[in-house]
Design a binder for these strands. Structure first.
Length: 153
DNA sequence: GCCAACGTTGGC
DNA sequence: GCCAACGTTGGC
């Protein structure tokens, strides 16, 4: 059982979109970064992730999602009409992967990046998303980091 | 809109 | 294999 942080731009897909989705579940596709792809593929059913809103007015953690389907080829890479189309990804040798996640809990409030930074010298001192220059859309989170963030709500 | 911090691409 | 150019991310 591992823990993660997954970024999404709420203007494109927010936690409320997920709350309204069928079975409160969505395919997490469109990831086009190899390191993030590797993390996606290493996710296991039952893993939990912090759902993070990025590139928005109040960046921060909006809730918790659970991995309900492990890595499978990202079909958006095969579709020339899709924004995430990648001709280098072939059906018999897929380059990109997706997982399915289900909304586990929407926080009553956003745990803002500002708030997380209060602990960047303490409990969250190794949290990847707080590191300078971090841009990865999927990052690992330790159990204690995960539980600490959850305890803030 | 700015810009730092990357990751990727492609010429050599 | 190097590295400049380019594109993207994401906080501010």
């Amino acid at each position: 059982m591992n823990y993660w942080l997954m970024k999404s731009e709420p203007g494109t897909f927010s936690i409320d979109h997920l709350a309204k989705a069928k079975s409160r579940t969505t395919g997490w596709d469109g990831v086009r970064n190899f390191q993030a792809r590797n993390y996606l593929r290493s996710m296991q059913e039952g893993d939990l992730a912090l759902f993070y809103h990025s590139s928005c007015e109040v960046p921060g953690v909006a809730g918790i999602v659970k991995v309900v389907r492990e890595g499978y080829p990202d079909k958006t890479a095969f579709d020339p009409k899709d924004h995430h189309y990648d001709p280098a990804s072939k059906a018999d040798a897929p380059r990109w992967y997706a997982v399915d996640v289900k909304l586990e809990r929407k926080f009553d409030r956003i745990v803002a990046l500002d708030e997380l930074r209060k602990y960047e010298k303490g409990k969250l001192k190794d949290m990847v998303v707080l590191r300078r220059g971090n841009r990865l859309s999927i990052t690992p989170v330790t159990k204690s980091e995960f539980e600490f963030v959850r305890s803030l709500v």
